[in-house]
Design a protein around this nucleic acid. Structure first.
Lengths: 238, 238
DNA sequence: GACTTTTTTATGTAGCTACATATTAATGAG
DNA sequence: CTCATTAATATGTAGCTACATAAAAAAGTC
């Protein structure tokens, strides 16, 4: 038996408060740019403690619904942004989630000096020798994602001893080299001749590219350019 | 003068606790899949209240670093995901942030019955008459984003009276029709003849497309397909 | 009037208690 | 031994107090 059913009066949870405030924003009782009452007044009005309002407001703030400033109070965000959370799983998990058989092929691997774009992605002052890996992820034997990865040997010397021909660098890194900071970007490219050949599709096809760089502290770990196959879509989790 | 400087001993904030736990995950003292001590023990070890650990853990949970279950305890996420938050601003704001002059052109507007793909995006059982708008966002007079939008007249009858030839439907909607639920997807397309003509580029160019549908409750508000121009990149905020 | 300092005030945080809730683990019935 | 019931336990939440902090507003100062 819940407390609500015992006392006959439901205790309002912070989610209830959050939803009530959200409703008021949605119903335009509080309009974009409007200042909201102070937490204490809302608490009194809705019959709960200030800490409960605080919790609710935190959440609305994180969600981009309101903006809070010390002393300045709370206001409805005047320039609404579309905020979304993306979860990008390991490719193997993604393929398996689609009910397909996962496959992995290392295409090339070796030590090379970082070309300018890679050094730029890492924000390196000078080029550096890194591990360069090209690999293909397969779903039911068909090419799924082509990845072009650079791994800093200065930050991850251990990876030199890992057999990356059977297991992807992604999996090894994700389990052994947690990161601190990440940079993600998405854009579209026309398949080059080399890409088309490796992904077995016509040259010029529009492909979604996911670029990701990770650091631990200031030390670069890895930067990957993942070229997806036609039809690939990135979806938000909400 | 802060309390820390007065007492000589800093009070540890929940962020300190969070960072300490995070460090332990990063340093692999707690490895993926490992079970963490109970909040109370961590609190005692680090010299703070359980509520502080709770707050820290909440944050790590939201960030996808750990997973918590009642009674089950806390464990380091065994299948690390790359979690990122995307903020997509109004196009006008985005253009202005780049230091360019924003321009807007309505290309076409009228009432039409939703074709199958649009009905599907909304999860509609039956096609419906909606407002269909094609418009172009410009940055310094050059095409920037081409949008193809459907607005539910059932949910937003007021929009019929808005002059959408000078101000984008996006701006009006964002200020007057807050949403509840959103669906976002990103993919790449080759520019069709029509797209190429409107965006003034060659047919077949790879373009990043952002598709967004919004609802209030179960009622559909709008669905937009925004076709960006070459070179456009979506970046994460973190 | 322009500038600096002080006060005020709304949000932010730490710590505590008490209880809720979801599981797991232990126990008991058959 | 299997299944249902009960107890134990880690996290989740509400409410309270006290204080910290940032920023606006007010009060001084030149």
């Amino acid at each position: 038996m819940t407390q609500a059913s015992k006392t006959g009066k439901a205790r309002r949870s912070w989610q209830d408060i959050r939803d009530e405030i959200h409703r008021r924003v949605l119903s335009r009782r509080y309009k974009p740019g409007d200042k909201l009452p102070r937490d204490e007044d809302i608490a009194e009005e809705l019959g709960c403690a200030r800490s409960t309002v605080q919790r609710a407001m935190q959440d609305l703030n994180d969600a981009g619904i309101v903006e809070r400033k010390r002393k300045g109070g709370t206001q409805v965000r005047p320039d609404p942004v579309t905020r979304a959370t993306l979860d990008i799983p390991i490719t193997r998990v993604e393929v398996e989630a689609r009910g397909a058989r996962y496959g992995y092929q290392m295409l090339a691997s070796g030590r090379e000096t970082t070309p300018a774009p890679v050094a730029a992605a890492f924000g390196l002052a000078a080029p550096e020798e890194m591990l360069h890996i090209e690999a293909l992820h397969l779903a039911d034997e068909a090419p799924f994602i082509l990845e072009d990865r650079w791994v800093s040997l200065a930050t991850c010397p251990e990876i030199a001893n890992v057999d990356l021909s059977v297991k992807s660098a992604n999996e090894w890194l994700v389990m052994h080299k947690p990161y601190d900071r990440m940079d993600l970007r998405f854009y579209a490219v026309n398949a080059s001749g080399a890409m088309a050949a490796r992904l077995k599709l016509r040259e010029g096809a529009a492909l979604l590219v996911i670029e990701r760089s990770t650091w631990i502290g200031d030390a670069p770990i890895t930067t990957v350019r993942s070229v997806t196959t036609p039809g690939y879509q990135l979806l938000t989790g909400s």
